[in-house]
Computed example of a mutant assay.
Amino acid sequence: MKVAIIGGSGFVGTRLIDLLASTGHDLLNIDKNISEKHSEITVIGNVMNKDLLISQLQGVELVVLLAAEHRDDVTPVSLYYDINVQGMKNTLEAMESIGIKRIVFTSSVAVYGLDKSNPDESFPADPFNHYGKSKWEAEQVLQEWYKEHNDWNVNIVRPTVIFGEGNRGNVYNLLNQIATGKFMMIGNGNNQKSMSYIRNVIAFIKFLIEEKNNGYNVYNYVDKPDFTTNDLVHHTSDILNKGIPTTHIPYWLGMLGGYGFDMLAWISGKKLNISSVRVKKFCAVTQYDSTKAMSSGFIPPYTMEEGLKNMLKEEFVR
Score class of each variant (00 low, 15 high):
G45S: 07
L66V: 11
V104P: 01
D73M: 13
S117M: 15
S55L: 15
I30H: 04
I41M: 09
I100Y: 02
M48D: 11
L57F: 12
V109Q: 00
M48N: 15
T106S: 14
I103K: 00
T75K: 15
L66C: 05
I83V: 15
Q140V: 09
E148I: 04
E36P: 10
N153D: 08
E93F: 11
V74D: 02
L114W: 10
W152C: 06
F105R: 02
H38C: 06
L62M: 13
I98Q: 08
V63C: 02
D151F: 00
M88R: 01
H70V: 14
I103E: 01
N129E: 12
Q56D: 05
L53M: 14
N118H: 15
A68G: 11
E36V: 10
P127N: 14
S35L: 10
S134R: 03
L114A: 08
E36D: 12
N84C: 10
H38S: 04
S108Y: 00
L142E: 00
L57H: 08
D31N: 13
M88S: 04
Q58N: 11
N33I: 13
R71W: 04
K32A: 01
L52T: 13
N118F: 15
G87R: 00
W136G: 02
Q56R: 13
K135Y: 10
R71F: 08
D51F: 08
P124E: 14
D31L: 11
S78R: 13
N118Y: 15
